[in-house]
């Protein structure tokens, strides 16, 4: 019987851990996967799979870098899905389709979606790596160290890619978006 109590305790902690992870990272991961895939349904599948994989991990090994772990798994899975979805379409041709938001007011949602799509068309003109690190930095607010853990790129490379990506965006962004 003591063993049963131990297992229940363990399961309870596991469920609590997953609940907290869902609470903190569900929406950011969905936003990130949606940005990569331009498809909310596919993004939801990817995020669901990411959390199911989390359930199968030894939490003691993951919890110290949970955020980076989740984004790494989500990113790899999303890129995998993207390639399977359209093998002939290079990543440069990501389509920045508008993604409806059930929780927002129609006007607010349309404005946000329009801005997102407009900026996306310019981000699509960057290199894959530039776009990748810029999304992680400015959409998800990750540090260079966290981006390093997710992409495997060195901090120096990340700094250079963000710097050159911002420079390119300054050149191509229209004044109305810039101001």
């Amino acid at each position: 019987m003591p063993r049963d109590r131990g297992e229940n305790q363990s399961l309870s902690e596991r469920e609590k851990f997953i609940e907290q992870a869902l609470e903190a990272y569900e929406s950011p991961l969905l936003g990130y996967a949606s940005t990569i895939l331009s498809d909310l349904d596919l993004a939801r599948d990817v995020v669901q799979e990411t959390f199911i994989r989390l359930c199968q991990q030894d939490f003691s090994k993951v919890e110290s870098h949970l955020k980076a772990w989740l984004f790494t798994v989500c990113r790899n899975r999303a890129l995998d899905v993207l390639r399977k979805k359209n093998r002939s379409q290079p990543l440069e041709d990501w389509q920045w389709r508008s993604i409806p938001d059930a929780g927002s007011q129609p006007d607010e949602n349309a404005d946000q979606t329009e801005r997102f799509a407009q900026l996306g068309s310019y981000l699509a003109r960057l290199s894959e790596n530039q776009r990748d690190v810029i999304i992680l930095k400015f959409q998800q607010g990750l540090s260079y160290q966290e981006i390093h853990e997710i992409t495997g790129l060195s901090s120096g490379n990340i700094g250079f890619l963000i710097h050159s990506g911002l420079k390119r965006l300054r050149e191509i962004l229209p004044p109305d978006l810039h101001h």
């Binding site: 969905l30 936003g31 199911i52 409806p100």
Partner: peptide, 23 residues
Amino acid sequence: ESIRPPTEVLLPHQREKIRRNAR
């Protein structure tokens, strides 16, 4: 300001599947 996508959440059955896996 502009790169933030609309806030979304998983569907209820997807959350439940994750919880089942956690259990």
